[in-house]
């Protein structure tokens, strides 16, 4: 029963992430929010991994972070307030869409320098290793970041120092405006982990239940061995790098293929096929998600802008 529950919960959480991103795209289109890097198409990777983490585990993410935050239980009202530059945002308007961190949720040190999160994750892992407890660190990055030297440096140090870091590569096939086939001959990123003595696995990143199962294994392994682990989730970025982006550079056949593998459609079809989801339940979830986002927009719009003193308020401790 809990499995069934989890499958429906996962679907609803993915729907919320999708609705959040589409709300942002809409707000941007109407000139009410800055552009953003959406995670549309990658919801299963975020929900599948984050749902396998414990409450004391920490997450480092990147510029495509909304899925990780919402999967962790972030308040969409405070996220939208942040993206629209308001005082009630998680970072008091200083982050915008790109660098949202929510320390209270364990979503920390978001870096939008591609690969930046990989360099910080080892330090968080070092704290976990030296200060006790069984918490682990999860670091989300993309296949683009895996082209940075920091990827190798981070995995290597985590391996040599026995750091409890779960590296999650969301391989979404795109590195900004360049397809990964242009930038690397490697089919995936796990071969590098093997060379460095780091355990690794690859999973269908659009199947939320497969991701959850693979992540549960990975999390358990890191927690028990206190050693790093690399999980590569093969997925696809269904929207452009940054809004707005007409995706004119994307092969239509490839895009169509992955649209058919939309993680939300896949999970919904599975649940319906298994008799775990009724049409009424879908309507209920769609309504709940819409209400949540309507409230978030209203909250963000009502939130005041920060005072100008916020510019310098937190530069130094």
């Amino acid at each position: 029963m809990s499995n069934h529950h989890r499958g429906v919960e996962a679907l609803e959480r993915m729907m919320l992430i999708r609705a959040y991103e589409e709300t942002l795209v809409d707000l941007h289109g109407r000139g009410r929010a800055a552009g953003t890097c959406t995670s549309v198409g990658q919801e299963a990777a975020a929900v599948g991994v984050v749902s396998a983490l414990g409450p004391d585990d920490q997450i480092l993410t990147n510029h495509r972070s909304a899925g990780h935050l919402l999967a962790r239980g972030a308040d969409p009202r405070r996220m939208l307030a942040e993206v629209t530059g308001k005082a009630d945002g998680y970072c008091k308007g200083m982050s915008g869409s790109l660098h949202i961190a929510a320390k209270e949720l364990g979503v920390i040190l978001t870096s939008t320098i591609v690969g930046g999160e990989l360099a910080l994750a080892t330090g968080v892992g070092l704290s976990r290793s030296m200060l006790g407890g069984d918490g682990i660190v999860t670091c989300f990055f993309g296949d683009g970041a895996a082209c940075e030297g920091r990827f190798q440096e981070s995995l290597n140090l985590a391996a040599v120092w026995n750091l409890p870091v779960l590296y999650v590569c969301e391989n979404n096939q795109w590195q900004a405006f360049v397809h990964r086939k242009e930038t690397t001959l490697a089919d995936g990123v796990t071969a590098q982990a093997a060379a460095l003595g780091v355990a690794a696995a690859t999973v269908d990143g659009n199947d939320v239940e497969a991701v959850h199962a693979a992540a549960a294994t990975a999390v358990e392994t890191v927690r028990r061995t206190r050693r790093p682990y690399l999980l590569e989730a093969r997925t696809y970025r269904l929207r452009g790098h940054f809004e707005p982006d007409d995706q004119s550079y994307v092969d239509p056949a490839e895009l169509a293929h992955w649209r058919d593998r939309d993680p939300i459609l896949l999970q919904r079809a599975r649940l319906e096929r298994d008799g775990l989801l009724s049409a009424d339940e879908v309507l209920r979830m769609e309504g709940a998600v819409r209400r949540t986002m309507d409230e978030a927009v209203a909250f963000a719009e009502a939130s005041p802008y920060p005072g100008f003193d916020q510019i310098t308020a937190a530069v130094y401790a």
Binding site: I108, A119, L120, T122, G123, L157
Partner: peptide
């Protein structure tokens, strides 16, 4: 010999209790 990851490791550790 990897100054980038060393500085990043210091920053990550500093932010989380060391």
């Amino acid at each position: 010999l990897a100054e980038g990851i060393l500085a990043g490791t210091a920053a990550g550790a500093a932010a989380t209790g060391l």
